[in-house]
Design a binder for these strands. Structure first.
Length: 646
RNA sequence: GCCGUUGUAGCUCAGUGGUAGAGCGCUUCCUUGGUAAGGAAGAGGUCACGAGUUCAACUCUCGUCAAUGGCUCCA
């Protein structure tokens, strides 16, 4: 007999050699039906693998993250099996599960494959599911593994096996399809009740753009049809919120081929929205002791040689601008930091001047490969809500905390409720990738960790993701439908102060090197507005939205009164327009609702006589009538309440 | 940059080797209507661009550009 410890701490006795399925069955039949695999002494095991010693066992179902991982990983095998049957001779790369679903990289040889083939593959997968094929694990020696795939002619698997250690290699077989795989897997394919192949893309073998490009097929599966339907609905919802679509519909921004790809053009409504965001941040920053500066859009090549950016990125930048006579070279500004370093260097500093916080909405230009461009989130010209803080080592942590406070205030104001802070540290085994002394790195990393802890941030740590000049903290927010976006960033930099030879006189009357903090709470205006559009679905908060209210006269007879109301409200800082078309009220309401305008003001005979307005709220309905002043107060107090809730 | 897909009216999209279509929007007229679509008429297109095949190309082929889904990249 062996002792099995379950997650609730209870210990049960079983015959030696029992498997996790039978353990599940001994608990309940329902559990046994739903269990995929088990965590045995912290390792993931297949259900049917016998347990011969005392162990701690956690049964894994769909409700566990590991369960989804197993489910989708098995689904990748299922798809590969179907593909192998339909396209004999194809070769397989890797086929992992991903955050939602799975993919498999396939070398389709001479087969021409397109999304039209998905139906065929899905049908074959369903057919295999109906057979409830068992998935069988087999331990093989490295020699056996190599010989199998060499014989099969699959050089990708052979390459993978070469990197593995003998004695750790397992195969998984379903039907005639055999794959190199660590597992674990579902006990059989019968669990996979709903299948959808989503898209198809090129993907380099092992992510190396010099190597062969395989065809990657993405798919998603679920244990219940209903869950697939819900997922597809979510995709629909995401499509509706797409900032590129809404940005066009709401006339916020546009692109022009003649102006150039990846160069967003802000239309009046979008520009006004952006300006409100900028003013909001400027006001906050002023309270935190920042000073605004303005720098030119180009910089002499020497500036970037000093900063080191020329050496690192010069070849991948827009080509330099040269003067016709003197042969000077300028680069379009790809970041604001070197300019700001020169501002610091423009006069001597005492420790009493620090921290110096200089801020700029700085427009920068970066060459991005054409295939990278995406709406407002990846562009070639954008404006950073940038600032650089020059401080003493003693001030670093406090300054860092203050930046976190600004970011938290912004998130709160803009209703981003869920977020995590990703702390990127350097890879200690790869120190040559970074510059600066161990001591400084240690100090900077400690400062970030302490600051994050002090502000109670929910953090994740990524080793090796630091910038080459220092560690950083990036905020990842979850939007209203659960998608993750990277927004603000805070970085600690020991490098640029060194390169620009920046210094201050300390209390000891000696020269010291300041530390620089780079920070952009929004990231960039473009990216932030894009995320805001997708987060709100275009229903911006009242203080930001382009049009806060629209006046709908019941008929042309009340046009004059409508104009009077419009004038009065505008004077009280309400952004209001009039729908003066000769349409019925129902039509005007419908259009205003579709335009996502927060308030509709209906005026007719009754309102004109009473000198009042009838209000309808977007997505809510009729709010009844009130005075014009009353409505302006309603709107302005709502905004005030939100913006003063620090 | 690489692989796949797409490109028809301002927008969303049908369509065919033989004179270019719908809905919405726009203009004009009728209607003056009280909380999600009143009616009629009209304007609007080098079918992304360039070559080729053909008696004939928006349609087929090739190329270019752009958008798009990924990959790689992201100071």
């Amino acid at each position: 007999m062996i002792n099995i410890t379950l997650p609730d701490g209870s210990v049960r006795q079983y015959q030696k050699g029992i498997n996790s399925y039978d353990i599940a069955l001994s608990i309940s039949e329902g559990l046994a039906r739903n269990v995929f695999a088990a965590e045995v002494n912290k390792a993931m095991w297949d259900l049917e693998r016998p347990i011969n010693n005392d162990a701690t066992v956690r049964l894994i179902t769909w409700n566990d993250d590991e369960g989804k991982d197993i489910f989708w990983h098995t689904s990748a095998h299922l798809m590969a099996e179907a593909i192998e049957i339909l396209y004999p001779g194809v070769k397989f790369g890797i086929g992992p599960s991903i955050e939602t679903g799975f993919y498999y990289d396939v070398d389709f040889l001479d087969y021409a494959i397109s999304s039209d083939d998905f139906k065929k593959i899905e049908d074959k997968m369903a057919e295999l599911v109906a057979q409830k094929q068992p998935i069988v694990r087999k331990e093989v020696s490295k020699a056996e593994a190599l010989s199998y795939f060499e014989k099969k002619g699959d050089e990708y698997k052979v390459e993978l096996i070469r990197d593995l250690e003998d004695g750790t290699i397992t195969f998984y077989q379903s039907g005639d399809f055999v794959d190199l795989c660590r597992g674990p897997h579902l006990p059989n394919m019968g669990f996979i009740k709903a299948i959808k192949l989503l898209n198809l893309a090129g993907a380099y073998w092992r992510g190396d753009e010099k190597r062969k490009q395989l065809t990657r097929i993405y798919g998603v599966t679920f244990p219940k049809k209903k869950e697939l339907d819900e997922y597809l609905l979510l995709l629909e919802e995401a499509k509706k919120r797409d900032h590129r679509k809404l940005g066009k519909e709401m006339e916020l921004f546009t692109f022009s081929q003649k102006v150039g790809v990846g160069l967003p053009i802000w239309l009046p409504k979008g520009a006004a929205l952006r300006e409100r965001l900028e003013n909001f941040l400027k006001k906050v920053q002023k309270e935190y002791g920042y000073q605004q500066v303005i720098c030119p859009h180009i910089g002499n090549v020497e500036l970037y040689k000093t900063s080191g950016h020329f050496q690192k990125y010069g070849a991948d930048s827009f080509r330099p601008i040269t003067t016709p006579q003197e042969g000077e070279e300028f680069f379009l500004k790809p970041m604001n930091c070197p300019h700001h370093c020169e501002i610091y260097a423009s006069k001597p500093h005492s420790y009493k001047d620090l921290p110096l916080r200089i801020a700029e909405f700085g427009t920068v230009y970066r060459y991005e490969q054409s295939g990278e461009l995406h709406g407002l989130t990846r562009v070639r010209g954008f404006t950073q809500d940038d600032a650089h803080i020059f401080c003493t080592p003693e001030q670093l942590e406090e300054e860092f905390c203050k930046v976190i406070d600004i970011v938290l205030y912004i998130f709160k104001t803009l209703d981003f409720k869920e977020f995590t802070a990703q702390i990127s540290l350097r890879d200690p085994d790869n120190k040559e990738k970074y510059i600066g002394s161990d001591e400084n790195w240690q100090k900077a990393e400690d400062a970030i960790m302490h600051a994050a802890k002090q502000r109670n941030l929910n953090t994740t740590v990524e080793i090796g993701e630091a910038a080459f000049y220092g560690p950083k903290l990036d905020f990842m927010v979850k939007d209203a439908i659960g998608r993750k976006w990277q927004l603000g960033t805070i970085q600690v930099d020991y490098n640029l102060p060194e390169r620009f030879d920046l210094e201050y006189i300390g209390s000891d009357n000696l020269k010291h090197r300041p530390i620089m903090i780079h920070r952009a709470p929004f990231g960039s205006m473009e990216r932030f507005v894009a995320v805001l559009i997708e987060h709100t679905g275009g229903n911006f908060p009242l203080w930001l939205t382009p049009t806060q209210a629209i006046i709908l006269p019941i008929s042309d007879k009340y046009q004059e009164y409508a104009e009077e109301v419009c004038k009065k409200l505008s004077k009280m800082d309400v952004r209001v327009t009039i729908d003066d078309r000769s349409e019925k009220t129902g039509k005007k309401i419908r259009d205003a609702e579709l335009q996502k305008i927060p308030y509709m003001i209906i005026v007719g005979e009754k309102e004109m006589n009473e000198n009042s307005v009838s209000i309808r709220q977007h997505g809510v309905g009729d709010l009844g009538s009130m005075t014009i002043d009353g409505f302006a107060t309603l709107i302005n107090s709502q905004i005030e309440e939100l913006l003063s809730s620090e």
